[in-house]
Design a protein around this nucleic acid. Structure first.
Length: 828
DNA sequence: AGCACGCCGACT
DNA sequence: GTCGGCGTGCTC
């Protein structure tokens, strides 16, 4: 007789393709009413009944007794940790990006929330040497190690001390012999941050007696008296007030007069910063129209999607602020994505200034603990606005009214780890699912987005005027080929030097932009032409002036410049390929009186250094700011009247379908830093290709023209927005294996397509080829690019899923990694 | 992934 | 005949 029983269908927290499916577990009767979708439970898994955290996707009943189900061990959450929307999002992500359920789930909840069990090995029988035979050297070694480590040790730590492959066998034998015991502990990776507090432990009637006993211990007496006044306070405060050290307090504790306790404190990443209220300016006509139009969608709860295409300085941020205000008035919440928070502190502070403390800021440089705290604040409904980088799109707001993505075209919205999601895609899906307004904003929208806008999939709002009525800067293109012909072989054109001098004289500020850090990126031999490369990567090493060494920007390896050429023993070294450090040296040489600062990854590695540099630039303690990409965004300094773009070509010549688009965007963004104040800005753009359509269009501030020119090329060569791409990356230590596997996968894809009646592969299967950088960190890299040309995208995805997911172990050897990137940002 | 099972060479 | 390394296959 079959009786009905309740079961759950769960995804286990196990990151492998083979366990990436729903598993059924029986719910024991005592947990019948405690489990709903979206909660986490503990389940026994696998032959060893390893205890795993699992995510409940379904709760149903079953009467089928054909398979013996294991039972849920315990429930972790009282409330679902994943909402219905989030469960659907996870499901959608899996299909969209061909990732695992668990990878999608890990996007949705912070690291600190995920429990993994740690095994604590405890030695329980000290007479163990009598229980094992002398030949069992491995067991003996393990036991002595545990003993040396104090009789108990976590298994993962033990594994670091002893070097046995199959340590689990040994542990199992020892457990059977009752020599050791295993305790399972949750490693909550994030410790709840606590602060030690002191409290007084002396009853009033003994007070005088106690004080008298301390007459020879002045510091202790003072401390105790202060503590009596305060009631209780943190150890830190007491030490400060009593001007004493921990030994004083410890002796008080030993005497039993005081006690310690740990109190949870919330980490506040903005603890040391204050934000002044940001005044609300009156919008100009264009801004007001945008606010009214989008405001209408907000008012009527319509899932409308907008693209605000506004020139640099057109005041998009102010529009966002006022839209958020409308959303808050409706009692709803908003997400604002910015490309990279640390690069746009001004935007963040404007939001903080306007909306105060019901904001959560999700920094990329937050510690896991800080991130966890912010996530909990959001989940517990303590905030209404989340502002953050890419991952903030997953913020667990429950009553979302608007999603705003600023600088929509930025590559930082594409994740660089699996799942390689695009935050704008997630935003689009989320806005649909949760019926919210979506606003994308950019001065230089991506080709895909603008194409959508022209096809009516997004409502286009165009802003043509700068908010403060400032004019767009005048861009002068300097043809470096002509400079060369005139005999100027220097990095700076005569125009740029002259303009910099003039600016310095007039006490105006200058920004110099070059998208390459370091000093010289190519170190070669003058006599034989040998180019120095990293030993582990297929890439030239960059010379860094600051530590006089060569550095590989891919694996980080550093080494000294060889005294002689490894190939021909000549001692003449050529430093070519200009980086920001060289620019810094050159400017110092040309303009010795200028105060210079450099901003790139090398000068901003320490926390807070961004802000410091920008602060001193803002305070006009710096005349010339030299920087890479990171100075191209969001900086708004009125005194900057000159921007020099050292070379517009470096991005242009990359073998990537987005090269022209990136160049246009970069030039426009960087140029937009000039002339934001009262005076008209001036931009000097140096290039060897002054007639390239992206250079001409950016000089004329003509996005439309650029878009139309580029669109023709995209269509001709079958690239987005006309196609979808799938990039398969293969990498491994053995080049032959990588090559073979990539070829085999490509052939199987052809075979599958063929079986469906498609038999030309010239445009839809490109490669396999060695990647642009064919080796990184000793790993050889190959890639296959798939395009949905004459083949449905769905079929390509199906083929990839079949080969690389469902039957992965058949096609991908163990010692090789293969990643899937749906619609990659670059194909380099 | 992580675990157990089972095979096989090496070593008492 | 064991010990211990390694490949294989399964997980509700």
């Amino acid at each position: 007789m079959n009786k009905e029983f309740k079961i759950v269908q769960v995804i286990v927290n196990n990151n492998s393709y083979q366990t990436d499916k729903l598993f059924d577990y029986e719910i024991p009767t005592h947990l019948y009413n405690k489990i709903t979708r979206g909660m986490r439970v503990m389940v026994p898994f696998g032959r060893g009944n390893q205890r795993l955290e699992a995510y409940v996707f379904n709760v149903t009943t079953s009467s089928a007794k054909d398979m013996k189900l294991k039972k849920v061990l315990a429930v972790i959450d009282e409330q679902p940790i994943l909402s219905e929307h989030q469960l659907r999002l996870a499901f959608w992500m899996k299909n969209q990006y061909l990732c695992k359920y668990i990878e999608a789930i890990h996007c949705l909840i912070p690291k600190g929330m995920i429990n993994k069990e740690r095994k604590l090995i405890i030695l329980v029988n000290n007479q163990w040497d009598t229980l094992i035979s002398p030949s069992q050297r491995k067991l003996k070694n393990i036991l002595t190690t545990i003993n040396d480590l104090g009789g108990k040790v976590y298994l993962d730590l033990l594994m670091q001390h002893v070097d046995y492959k199959e340590i689990n066998d040994a542990i199992k034998t020892l457990l059977e012999k009752n020599i050791i015991d295993i305790k399972y502990e949750f490693n909550s990776k994030i410790n709840i941050k606590t602060e030690r507090y002191v409290y007084i432990n002396v009853k009033d009637n003994r007070w005088n007696e106690v004080l008298a006993s301390l007459k020879n211990a002045k510091k202790q007496k003072v401390s105790l008296e202060i503590l009596k006044q305060q009631g209780e306070c943190s150890v830190k405060e007491l030490l400060y007030m009593a001007n004493t050290g921990m030994t004083t307090l410890n002796s008080l504790k030993d005497k039993g007069y005081i006690g310690f306790m740990d109190v949870e404190v919330k980490r506040d990443p903005f603890a040391n910063k204050s934000f002044s209220a940001f005044p609300k300016p009156v919008p100009n006509k264009e801004q007001q129209m945008a606010i009214d139009r989008i405001g209408n969608s907000i008012k009527n709860n319509i899932n409308d999607r907008y693209l605000i295409h506004g020139i640099t300085g057109s005041g998009k941020t102010e529009i966002y602020l006022q839209l958020i205000e409308k959303v808050l008035e409706k009692g709803k919440q908003g997400i604002v994505l910015v490309p990279e928070i640390s690069l746009t502190p001004q935007t963040v502070s404007r939001f903080m200034g306007r909306f105060g403390d019901r904001i959560a800021v999700l920094h990329s440089s937050l510690s896991d603990g800080e991130r966890y705290d912010e996530w909990r604040r959001i989940a517990m409904n303590e905030v209404d606005i989340v502002i953050g980088a890419r991952s903030a799109i997953f913020a667990p707001l429950k009553n979302l009214g608007i999603i705003i993505i600023d600088e929509e075209h930025e590559h930082t919205y594409k994740s660089d780890q699996t799942p390689r999601y695009m935050a704008t895609d997630i935003a689009e899906y989320r806005s649909q699912l949760e019926n919210t307004v979506l606003v994308l904003g950019s001065a230089t929208p991506s080709m895909e987005t603008y194409h959508k806008a022209l096809n009516g999939k997004l409502d286009l709002i165009t802003l043509t005027k700068r908010a403060t009525d400032a004019k767009l800067p005048h861009i002068e293109v300097v043809n470096m080929t002509e400079e060369l012909e005139l005999g100027n072989t220097a990095v700076f054109s005569s125009q740029l030097i002259a303009a910099m001098e003039e600016n310095l004289k007039n006490q105006k500020q200058t920004i110099l932009f070059l998208n390459r850090r370091g000093h010289s990126s190519v170190i070669s031999c003058k006599s034989c032409g040998y180019v120095l490369k990293c030993e582990h990567c297929d890439i030239t090493m960059t010379f860094h002036r600051t530590d006089e060494r060569l550095k590989c920007h891919y694996c980080g390896q550093m080494k000294h410049v060889p005294a002689v050429c490894p190939s021909c023993n000549s001692d003449s070294v050529k430093y070519s390929g200009t980086g920001t450090q060289k620019i810094e040296d050159l400017v110092k040489h040309y303009l010795p009186t200028a105060r210079i600062m450099r901003m790139d990854m090398d000068t901003t590695s320490r926390k807070g250094s961004h802000e410091k540099i920008l602060e001193s630039f803002k305070n006009q303690e710096v005349d010339i700011l030299i920087g890479t990409q990171m100075i191209s965004k969001g900086l708004d300094f009125p005194n900057v009247t000159l921007v020099g773009i050292i070379s517009a070509d470096s991005a242009l010549n990359l073998p990537d379908f987005r090269a022209a688009e990136r160049t246009f965007q970069l030039v426009t963004q960087v140029a937009g830093r000039a002339g934001r104040g009262l005076e008209e800005g001036r931009v000097i753009l140096q290039t060897y290709e002054p007639n390239h359509y992206s250079i001409i269009a950016s000089r004329n501030h003509d996005y439309e023209k650029f878009f139309q020119d580029e669109l023709i090329i995209r269509k001709e060569f079958y690239y987005p927005p006309f196609t979808n791409l799938i990039l398969l990356n293969f990498s491994g230590k053995d080049e032959k294996t990588v090559d073979y596997a990539a070829n085999s996968v490509a052939n199987h894809i052809k075979y599958i397509l063929n079986s469906q009646g498609y038999n030309t592969f010239d445009y839809n299967i490109l490669g396999p080829n060695p990647s642009m950088i064919s080796k990184i960190k000793e790993n050889y890299r190959y890639q296959i690019l798939l395009k949905d040309v004459e083949v449905p995208f769905g079929l390509l995805k199906k083929a990839v899923k079949y080969l690389l997911i469902d039957n992965r172990n058949k096609y991908i050897p163990q010692n090789l990694t293969c990643s899937i990137d749906i619609n990659p940002f670059t194909i380099i």
